[in-house]
Structures are given as C-alpha cells and as structure tokens.
Design a protein around this nucleic acid. Structure first.
Lengths: 108, 108
DNA sequence: TTGCCATTTCGTCATTTTGCGAAACATAGA
DNA sequence: TCTATGTTTCGCAAAATGACGAAATGGCAA
C-alpha cells in the first residue's frame, strides 16, 4: 500500500502533476522545468525529490545537467501514467508546447 | 487535470486509501467504517466527504443508515481502482477480514 | 587549485490538512 | 410530538506541506 500511497501523494499536487505530464514530452533538467512552471529552483528541486522517492521519475547526468525523466520501467508507475494519456486541458497544452521549445542553451 | 488531481489527492491519504480498499469488499455505513479504522466519527465523516467530492464513492440511504460504496460508474475512478486490485499487505487483509465480519447490528 | 554553474539543502514562514469532541442536524419509530 | 440513533458541521489544536531566498554541495573547465 505504501507504494501506491507515495505515488498518489506525489501526484496529488498540481505542480508535480504538471511536471510529470511535461516529462512525457521529453526529459528535462531542473532549470528547464523551472522555466516552464515558473517557481523557484529550490521549489522545483523539492518537487522532483518527492517524485523521485515515489519512483515516478529517474534521472541521468548529461554534461553539466541532470536530466529528469519518467521511470517507465516501474510497472505501477507506468500503469498510473497511462491513465493520464488523454489529458488535454489548455494549461497542459501550453506546458507541452513550452516543453517542446525548451532549450537549455537559452535557459540555464 | 483537476479531476485527476482530486482523485490523487483523495487517495494520497492512508486512512482514505484504507477506506476505499475496504469498500471494495462491501458498502458500509459510517459507523462500520469507524469501527474498522478506529478514528472518530467526525474524522471518518470528513474523509468520506473528500472521497465523495472526488467522486470516488457514492452513497445511498438504507433504513436508518447511509451506505457508502465505490462509484464504479465513473470511468476514471474505476480505472484508478483497478490498479489497486492486487494490493495485499497484512494491514489490508486485516481490514478486509473485519469488513466482512462487520455488522451494523453489533456496531451502530 | 580556483571559479563557475546546476542543483540540493537549510531555515523560515504561510497555508493546508488532519484529528478530535461538542454541538447541530436528520429521520425513523414509539 | 418526543426520543433515539446515525451522520455532519463547527471550532480549535497539532502536524504536514509548499514556497522562497540564502547558503552549501558537486563536478567540470580553465
């Protein structure tokens, strides 16, 4: 139960849900995510920590950056993420658009 | 997104997750749930309110009681609840056992 | 080594959430 | 109507959460 509890807790926050939906578009570093969400670096970092602990996301170093992405290897997580497949609000479209355009060179 | 947010928020609490899993066994009234969970009446009532607002549960009057049950007619909800199908911890088994034995005559 | 840059951790504050008992409410039955 | 009983609402205290800026960390490059 703890596994699901962590996942639901993690996804039960608007900012984190937005982050997760954005990461379906592509993996991103903290400052790219920050740019789209608009909160402070430390706030984003904290949200990512919670998503990490729920094993919803993972990360890998690339260059000077740490790229965060969805942990699709986790079966429970990928099942939950499938539910979100057809989310389609204006806000989400906007985030997705920005995610596509996001480019570390112009952000970090 | 708001719909999912509400659902995840609602299920991101241990007590509420326990209630939902119990309600898969059978519909129950507030005092039956109270007996199994062990919190106060008002606490349980408040949790049920949150689950109601997320449309995870519904209710119907029966006799003097209000029976709460899972709102399986809601597609999103039933998809989420399917995820929980194979939960199997000791605590959950205990709750399920108690739910099966619960009988308003001896509780309310 | 030193400096730089991306990220995390820390300390603090405001807000939200959770839990409780008491009181209020609703309603079926005497 | 009055009573008993099941449920909800209210008011409050304690705990958890989310946000921020500042400071600390980690690692690459000069």
């Amino acid at each position: 139960m703890t596994e699901y509890l962590k996942i639901f807790k993690a996804l039960g926050d608007k900012t984190r849900l937005r982050i997760v939906i954005m990461l379906k578009v592509k993996s991103m570093c903290v400052c790219e995510i920050r740019e789209i969400i608009g909160s402070s670096m430390s706030t984003i970092s904290n949200h990512l920590k919670i998503l990490k602990e729920a094993e919803i996301i993972n990360f890998q170093k690339e260059d000077r950056y740490i790229n965060y992405g969805l942990n699709t290897e986790n079966k429970t997580v990928s099942q939950v993420l499938e539910l979100l497949a057809d989310l389609d609000s204006a806000e989400i479209k906007n985030d997705r658009q920005k995610a596509l355009l996001a480019d570390r060179i112009n952000i970090c």
